[in-house]
Design a protein around this nucleic acid. Sequence first.
RNA 1: GCGGCCGUAGCUUAAUUGGCAAAGCACUCGGUUGUGGUCCGGGAUUAUGCGGGUUCAAGUCCCGUCGGUCGCCCCA
Length: 426
Amino acid sequence: MPKKIQSLSGMHDIFNSRYDYFEKIREVSSRVAKEYGFKGIEFPIMEETELFARGVGGVTDIVEKEMYTFKTKGGDFVALRPEGTASVMRAYIEHNFYTRPQPTKLFYFGPFFRYERPQAGRFRQFWQFGLEAIGKSCFVVDVQIIKVISNIFEELGIKTKIEVNNMGDLKCRKEFKTVLRRYLKKRSNLLCSDCKRRLKENPLRVLDCKQCIEVKSEAPQIIDHICKQCRSDFKNFLEFLEELDIPYNLNPFLVRGLDYYTGTVYEFFLETEDEERMAVGGGGRYDGLSKILGDEERPATGVAIGIERIILAMEKSGGDIIEKKIPDVFIAQLGDLAKKKALNLFEEMRNSKVDVAESFGQDSLKSQMNRADKLGAKITIIIGKEEAVEDRVILRDMNSGEQEKIKTEEVLKEVKGRLKKNKNKD
RNA sequence: GCGGCCGUAGCUUAAUUGGCAAAGCACUCGGUUGUGGUCCGGGAUUAUGCGGGUUCAAGUCCCGUCGGUCGCCCCA
């Protein structure tokens, strides 16, 4: 026997009830996004490696360790997309979206790839839904984006907490980094070994270290060091959140690892009974990205949420928002002639918008009745050999067990009548 | 990339110090030559992830590997 082939590490099939959740999330999220004026966009699963490499700048781990990169037969260096924002920005620049009304509001839903060791809620292929608004800077858009996500979560029955912070713009954050570095240097003997390294490479990351809690609790906070403009934007942002009755918590330690992020940042955390802290999404401004990609400065803001983690949350909460589809009619048949007639009747029913089910692949009537019962069909239509010849069918009420024989041409009318009666009873 | 734990049928689990690999659910077929829900019976050379080793004997012990899970690094 040849070796069994299984799916790759961190990559999963989505089926059964998970697929129902998945489909529901996609439907709800794109519908709500459209209600707020976002337009859908699909972009390629592969891009030039450079697109993602430039965005992450000096963080070499990401490019070298955590991206799926390879050289094509034609000699191009390409990468499976690890996120959506860079691609959306690339599309914005490539297709001159600045000629549209600004900001250009776009949403996407698709798979992304990161070569990482899988762990809780983290996979190598994972799905994200994201919103981006590019071309005009206004804190209202940030608030609106948060509202869109909140509405989506609410409709999906998921409870989340929002944490917000402001990282300053490119200039005032640079100044804050110096202040923070100076503070940390003085206490470097108290830092964990990872943070000693972070101090050099990315001092902001010390702020969300799980070990160095004591050092960071006394550390200078970004909020106190951002410029006037950033401060007033952030104040307005918070006021508007309150205006829309969106509860939030300030988290001065909430940061982003990459340089192109600016200003407001926020994350959505699942509200779980245990004290687990699981982020299901996050977003913020990234005014610095377009320039890195070779365009003029384009103010931009966006959010992305992780579909797998939402599915997990829906499964935990019972997930009764997925309605089980119960067929109105099940068609059973015996013999080749009956099978042909059943096939036609199925089409006729379907065209008349009757929810109809079948199991034509099974031959015994017992099996077919069993299936009809399991599916919960209200009515079963049985076409046996005899009925097929005399052009009649048996109509069986699955609740009462009563059945009668009627002419084939009258079936549709009779079925519709019974279903209507049933509905009125409810 | 580094470390802990785990891996028995589609699912959930059982198997004393190493000693005949079991059961329920689901699926399928039949009892009823043409009728579901209850009942009874048949069916998994398609289950110990894979490959080695120790042993008379390995699901059980050892090594490797793959996968899962949890943590670290990183997190766009």
